[in-house]
Design a protein around this nucleic acid. Structure first.
Lengths: 319, 319
DNA sequence: TTGAAAGCGCTACCAC
DNA sequence: GTGGTAGCGCTTTCAA
């Protein structure tokens, strides 16, 4: 491989001057620039980025931690982030964890070893204090409402949006509403459960254990849910569902079994994925591009900040 | 920042020895290891990866080029690749291009500057010869059937799977079949069009321009297609569709308009996404995990190889 | 406007 | 089992 010294020799100048040309410094003689350029063209030289990184201590790489990408929620999120990144001079490193803690630690080590300039957590398995223990290792941004010194966060207001969904169902006459969640104790599930409890309280409705279904993530979970529902005697009149995938599984299965939605069961999904549009399903919209922009903005800022993202109920035909 | 020399000094050994401990070399005295370890623990030292990269000339980074990730096809693909990568000691750099050529060139430059050890093209806008001109810059793998010296490829047999879909429709009595594609001249569309032409020829069926619909990618495109279909007089009895998203848009819109699928129109989708399962839709399965494994295997091999992926027709209720 | 030289922090070779 | 030393290729400071 040719290096900067080879170019310097060919152009009859010093490596310093070559470096100046490479980095478009002013005050270099035009003729000199041309000579260097000629040598570069001739050899097809490109500078060794590792040497630059070593010298400067940065990589312009932003790491993002996601559990999977075969789920629309995360892929749309990553897409939004990638769009935002492509407007900067940084690149995106993906650490897909399947929620394995070891993988998340690996990501944190990437930050610590400066292999990435910043790490964005889209979702996590490790405890907050583990993340906190790395807060001095580099810039971190988290997509949830944690209040840790030195760590930026952008978060969706799941409490408000869930409450709004419940209130909308109540306004449409529903007195027994069920909800389903994915990971029972994730930050967003905790918010959603609190919204549910507060809602029931406010309307003096009873809390029934069976009205909170957990581990619903995939479309298949919605199918299972529908089959259970079909066989149960006492059942809710409305369902507020984890996401549109689960809602679609629920909806299509019920309809195929002859149910009428929303008459027999009202459904609200989450994410406003295209499937919800196709099924004319009421859902909650998540502004992924805005979230991506926000996360990248925070990734590049020097101080830590907090930012709330509002979600919007999209009213369609399943309520 | 503490560096290897600081640790060496603290432990009373040389930097070489510290390096040996760091890299788990054998033949280091146990006491020495302990002393070094103590110094490392005390300072919280981690090695500067840039120096390692500079020294070794590698980054263990694999770049992948995708146009978007808000589409299930690509997100499942990236997910499959990410799963495969996570079994290696490499990491994944995503270059999301929106099919902008400039972005693809940026990715190629990343390879040339050794910022990544290998580049995987999942889909491209630039011409093959542009890619070819970078074939000496580093390892490249492409997800399509190109035959370029020094570039590995894994490709799906779109011709065979499309032909099989058409044959299946024909066997079910359909004589006028339409197809829809996305980008008219993409490698896969060209294969699919050829399969269509060959199929028509083999069965002495006429080729009608209006039976090839292009630019169908999103669910919304399927909705539009359905609306056109509803208003047209002479129409096909079966549709072989770009992907399950478009097929879902088509299906749900027709059903809502009172059509019976497959009686009024048979539909075959593509990708076997969960939505096709929910709608009980006949489709073609793409083995994303296998593709991911294969691409990463080729990324890490030294020679260039070719590999074909077979696709499988999943028979359900829309034919 | 240009150049010499000193690192950035690590690994690998060779010597002991 | 251990250490000295010579780079990897670049940028930056200082001096000319």
């Amino acid at each position: 491989m040719t290096n900067i010294h080879d170019i310097a020799k060919m152009a009859g100048v010093s490596a310093t001057t070559v470096s100046r040309v490479l980095n478009h410094h002013p005050h270099v003689n035009e003729e000199t620039v041309k000579a260097v350029q000629r040598a570069i063209d001739e050899t097809g030289y490109t500078k060794n980025i590792h040497a630059v990184h070593l010298k400067k201590g940065r990589t312009n790489l932003i790491g993002i931690v996601v559990p999977f990408m075969d789920q629309i929620y995360f892929s749309q999120l990553v897409d939004g982030i990638a769009r935002a990144v492509s407007k900067t001079d940084c690149h995106l490193l993906i650490i897909q964890t399947q929620y394995i803690e070891e993988k998340e630690l690996e990501a944190l080590e990437l930050l610590k070893t400066k292999q990435i300039d910043c790490l964005i957590f889209c979702s996590r398995s490790v405890q907050v204090d583990v993340i906190q223990s790395y807060s001095q290792s580099g810039k971190m941004v988290v997509l949830e409402d944690i209040q840790v010194e030195g760590i930026s966060c952008t978060y969706m207001n799941h409490y408000d949006s869930f409450y709004a969904g419940l209130a909308f169902l109540y306004a449409n006459g529903h007195k027994r509403i069920s909800i389903c969640l994915n990971r029972e104790n994730s930050t967003s599930s905790l918010q959603r459960k609190k919204a549910f409890a507060d809602f029931l309280n406010a309307h003096q409705l009873p809390f029934l254990d069976e009205d909170v279904v957990t581990d619903c993530l995939y479309l298949e979970d919605g199918i299972n849910l529908a089959n259970q529902l079909i066989q149960s005697a006492a059942r809710p009149t409305a369902f507020l569902v984890t996401n549109d995938q689960v809602a679609a599984g629920l909806y299509t299965t019920l309809v195929r079994a002859g149910w009428n939605v929303p008459k027999d069961l009202a459904i609200i999904g989450f994410d406003n994925q295209s499937i919800s549009k196709a099924l004319d399903m009421t859902t909650v919209q998540i502004p992924f591009n805005k979230i991506g922009e926000q996360l990248i903005k925070q990734a590049l800022e020097s101080e830590a900040t907090r930012h709330e993202i509002k979600l919007e109920l999209i009213k369609r035909g399943t309520v």
